[in-house]
Each structure stands twice: as structure tokens, then as C-alpha cells.
Write a protein that binds this DNA or RNA. Structure first.
Length: 197
DNA sequence: TCTACGATTTACT
DNA sequence: GTAAATCGTAGAA
């Protein structure tokens, strides 16, 4: 079962917390990967110095963030990694939630193929660049619809267990001034698959 | 055009 | 612990 678009059209901070525990599904041909979202970061739009759209910057790269909530914003970082974001808020309100870590649920063999050389299961998807590689996410999926899409979408976890959410400062945004210490990183307490403790 | 650098990962000391 | 890999994009010129 999927979420309604209205689930994603809220503030990035809310979406970041509420995505925890739900599933990211990647379907390519016959291969299917399901992974539980265990760590996210909120990027809160034009007022957030850590956000790519700070100050209302609208460029070719950030264009997808101006879509309505529920779309994907995927960009390349350090010339070698992709990062997956879930766009939040309304159209032309450029907020997003970075998916930082997931826990493999289905299709682990396929993930291992994509992450050649990695043997430890908990190192397969515990970082934004790692999970993008594991799920074969790249620029082709930028701007795709995570509510209605087929290749990549969010699936609701109908038997969501109780867990505690930990809030922590976001990672690697030293340039963000007073925003770098905001506790806008969210993860499931005690989960072995988060990128950093 | 030109230049600097990043919402990272990996390998190496 | 530190540094290399590696290139598209943003912002300046």
C-alpha cells in the first residue's frame, strides 16, 4: 500500500521522521529490491543554509526540488556518488528529505551484485551513496514520482513496530553556519544500519 | 569559458 | 587516523 500525495506535501522535518520504518522499493525488470528506511535528514528549503535551494536558488540541478512533494531529487556528489532525496512540501516550496541509510529486506543478492566487494551485510546500504549504488539509483530517476511510479517508489509499512527516533546534527554540512548544528538528522534508535552513530 | 568544491566512499598509514 | 578518487555544477570572470 502506498501513501497519498498529501503525506509528502508537509514540512520536510515531519516527512523525515514519518518516513522512518517504511519501505523504499526498487523494481528493474524482474529484479525487485525492498529496503526499510532507517535514517533520513531534512533539508528545509530557502531558509536553510545547508539546503541546495537556500535563498531560493533554482538551477538545473535543483529543479526537481521545486516539484510537489513525493517526487525524487537525485544529484551527483564528489563526482562518484549519487544521493536520493524525497521531495517534501508543496510545489515551488523546495524542501527535501535525504535518505541516508536503509536496511535490506528483499533482494539482498541483487544488492550484493551492485555492491561488489562488500561482504558485511550492514555495510551494503548504510550511507547515501552506498544505498544509491545498491539500488541502482542514478540521474535517470531524478524527478520521478515516488507515489505513483513503478521503477522506484515508497511503500507503506502496515505493521510498523514501535521504535524511538533519535535526532542528531546533519552530516558533512560544515558550510551551513548556524544551521549545521540543527538536529535535523533522524534515525531509528539502536538500528545497526545507520551511517553514523 | 574557467575554477573550486561538495548532503561521500574507500583504501591506505 | 588521513587522503585520494573524480566530475558535474554553481558562481565568478
Amino acid at each position: 500500500m502506498r501513501f497519498k500525495p498529501s503525506f509528502f506535501s508537509r514540512n520536510a522535518l515531519v516527512v523525515a521522521e514519518e518516513l522512518l520504518g517504511h519501505f523504499l522499493v526498487r523494481q528493474t525488470g524482474k529484479q525487485r529490491i525492498v529496503a526499510k528506511i532507517v535514517e533520513t535528514e531534512a533539508y528545509c528549503g530557502i531558509e536553510d543554509k545547508g539546503c541546495h535551494t537556500f535563498g531560493g536558488r533554482r538551477t538545473e540541478r535543483t529543479e526537481a526540488m521545486f516539484l510537489p512533494g513525493g517526487h525524487a531529487y537525485i544529484y551527483m556528489i564528489y563526482g562518484m556518488n549519487f544521493c536520493l532525496n524525497v521531495v517534501a512540501a508543496a510545489k515551488n516550496d523546495p524542501q527535501a528529505v535525504l535518505i541516508r541509510a536503509v536496511e535490506p529486506v528483499e533482494g539482498i543478492d541483487f544488492i550484493k551484485e551492485n555492491r561488489k566487494g562488500i561482504v558485511k551485510e550492514q555495510d551494503l546500504t548504510n550511507g547515501p551513496g552506498k544505498l544509491a549504488k545498491a539500488l541502482m539509483i542514478d540521474k535517470n530517476l531524478n524527478g520521478c514520482d515516488l507515489v505513483r511510479g513503478k521503477e522506484l517508489y515508497i511503500e507503506r509499512n502496515l505493521s510498523l513496530p514501535d521504535f524511538e527516533i533519535v535526532s542528531a546534527p546533519r552530516v558533512n554540512i560544515d558550510y551551513a553556519g548556524e544551521f549545521k548544528d540543527k538536529p535535523w538528522r533522524k534515525y531509528i534508535k539502536g538500528c545497526k544500519f545507520v551511517s553514523k552513530l
